Deep mutational scan, measured.
Amino acid sequence: VTLFVALYDYEARTEDDLSAHKGEKFQILNSSEGDWWEARSLTTGETGYIPSNYVAPV
């Protein structure tokens, strides 16, 4: 399991995006899409895309 933590708040801009709150942890499901990674929030269980530069490894 690849875990990352949000460094900043991010507000989803499309229905495919996933909002993130600073300190929230995510499981990365797919990081092969360049700057946008598919992730699952460990807080809400929701999945979507987050900007890779907004997260760091735990």
Score class of each variant (00 low, 15 high):
50 I>F: 03
46 E>N: 12
55 V>Y: 02
12 A>E: 02
26 F>W: 04
27 Q>M: 13
51 P>H: 09
40 R>C: 08
34 G>W: 09
35 D>G: 12
24 E>S: 03
16 D>V: 13
17 D>T: 13
28 I>E: 00
52 S>T: 06
26 F>G: 00
36 W>L: 11
55 V>M: 13
24 E>T: 03
30 N>V: 08
22 K>F: 06
37 W>T: 02
4 F>D: 00
49 Y>S: 05
39 A>F: 14
38 E>G: 03
50 I>D: 02
9 D>K: 05
8 Y>R: 09
22 K>S: 05
31 S>Q: 13
48 G>I: 05
45 G>T: 02
3 L>G: 02
3 L>K: 04
58 V>E: 08
32 S>A: 11
8 Y>S: 06
50 I>Y: 01
21 H>R: 14
3 L>C: 14
13 R>Q: 14
44 T>R: 04
25 K>H: 13
52 S>R: 13
37 W>K: 01
22 K>G: 03
52 S>N: 05
40 R>I: 10
54 Y>D: 00
31 S>E: 09
2 T>N: 11
28 I>K: 02
47 T>I: 14
49 Y>E: 00
28 I>G: 02
1 V>S: 12
15 E>W: 09
33 E>V: 11
7 L>N: 02
55 V>F: 14
24 E>G: 03
39 A>T: 01
48 G>H: 02
12 A>Y: 02
50 I>W: 02
31 S>C: 15
24 E>A: 02
47 T>C: 09
9 D>I: 05
20 A>H: 04
8 Y>F: 12
25 K>F: 15
35 D>E: 12
18 L>A: 01
51 P>G: 04
53 N>L: 10
1 V>T: 12
39 A>K: 01
27 Q>H: 11
8 Y>W: 13
38 E>H: 14
5 V>D: 00
5 V>N: 00
5 V>P: 00
15 E>Q: 12
40 R>T: 10
4 F>N: 01
6 A>V: 06
44 T>K: 03
2 T>S: 11
22 K>T: 08
54 Y>M: 15
45 G>R: 04
10 Y>L: 06
38 E>C: 15
54 Y>R: 07
2 T>R: 13
46 E>P: 01
39 A>H: 01
2 T>E: 10
23 G>I: 01
24 E>V: 03
43 T>P: 01
15 E>K: 13
22 K>P: 05
28 I>V: 08
41 S>F: 03
27 Q>W: 15
31 S>R: 13
57 P>I: 08
32 S>G: 11
49 Y>G: 03
49 Y>H: 07
49 Y>C: 12
4 F>G: 04
43 T>A: 11
34 G>F: 08
57 P>T: 05
53 N>K: 13
48 G>D: 01
15 E>S: 13
57 P>W: 06
46 E>M: 14
10 Y>A: 02
19 S>Q: 07
19 S>L: 03
41 S>T: 01
4 F>V: 13
21 H>C: 12
38 E>D: 04
21 H>Y: 14
51 P>L: 07
2 T>V: 13
47 T>S: 09
21 H>P: 02
7 L>G: 01
